[in-house]
Simulated assay, not measured.
Amino acid sequence: MSQFFESIKIEDQKIFLLDLHQKRVNETFANFGKEGSIDLGKIFKSLNHDEDGLFKLRISYDLDKSFRTQMIPYAISEINDFQLVENNLYDYSFKFEDRKEFERMKIKAKADEIIIVKNNHITDTSFSNLLFKKGKEWFTPNTFLLNGVQRQHLLKNKKIKEVEITPQNLKQFSHFQIINSMNDFDDMFIYPISKITNLPESGEYLEI
């Protein structure tokens, strides 16, 4: 049974952010005391993918280096609303295949998507990192569940900055957006902060 996965952007037969995806896979093997890794670039080439358009390459793998692949046509979806959900115990330091805790939080929420609050700090949605806009600049929380490859890429290229973001200071920002390997911050939907239905003054955030 697979324990981890990577979702990689493939557009017009080109693979994106491969070095960061490979780094994360290598670190996963090393953290759990395993030598070697799987070669994501080699796996992609072996698929002989020859279709243009936007696809998500999902590679599920285990620490014995067994893996399976799916090449899935991808379209960006708009989200109607978001809800802050408090969960101080959840650890998602690695890209685990088991996402039951995310699913449990989403079922209890009364919105399309959740924004997870951990130790009174904004972290991630159930499937992405976050960016928040103040003036003309974009910021990402310095707290996160998973340090995503797009987040790392944008920080490295100085397109965004890290800052402390809590439920109490969310109103300092005018807009936000979600980023992950499939969604960079040039072509994402941008949401007004009011899309978060339970900002502190309009109601307590949901404890899970």
Rank of each mutant, 00 (worst) to 15 (best):
E164T: 10
L199Q: 11
T123G: 01
I72F: 00
N119I: 07
E101S: 08
E201H: 13
Q168H: 02
K161P: 11
M182S: 05
S66Y: 04
Q83T: 04
V25S: 01
M1L: 02
R58G: 11
L89M: 03
K14Y: 05
S66L: 02
T123V: 02
Y74C: 14
V163Y: 09
P73Q: 06
L89N: 14
M188V: 10
Y90H: 12
K171Q: 10
M71H: 01
I15S: 00
K9Q: 08
D39W: 14
L130A: 15
T28W: 04
F132G: 05
A111Y: 02
R99Y: 05
E207V: 15
G135S: 09
D12N: 14
Q150E: 13
N129Q: 08
F185H: 00
L155A: 06
M1E: 02
D81G: 02
K23C: 13
S77R: 12
D91T: 06
I79M: 14
E27K: 11
N129L: 12
E113V: 04
L131E: 11
E164N: 13
T140E: 03
S202C: 00
F173D: 03
D12E: 07
F94E: 01
I116A: 04
I116G: 07
S66E: 10
N120T: 06
F4T: 01
S174D: 12
S60T: 12
G203L: 02
Q13V: 05
L206H: 05
Y92H: 03
Q168C: 04
R68C: 14
L63R: 00
Q152F: 07
I116N: 00
N180E: 04
I116T: 03
V85Q: 12
L57T: 12
A75T: 13
L130N: 04
I114C: 03
S2Q: 14
L40M: 05
I208S: 00
L84S: 06
I196N: 11
T125M: 01
T166H: 11
G53D: 13
N129W: 05
E51A: 09
I115H: 07
F67G: 07
K133V: 08
K14R: 09
K134G: 14
I72A: 09
K56N: 15
F189P: 14
I114Q: 10
I15G: 04
G33C: 08
K65D: 01
D12W: 10
E137Q: 09
G36H: 01
G148M: 02
L155Q: 06
T166E: 13
I10D: 03
D12I: 01
D184S: 04
I15F: 00
I208K: 04
K14I: 04
I193E: 06
I193H: 00
Y74G: 09
S181M: 06
E86T: 08
T197E: 15
I160Y: 14
K118T: 01
G135T: 15
F127G: 15
E207H: 12
E11M: 01
E207F: 11
K195D: 11
F176I: 02
F176K: 03
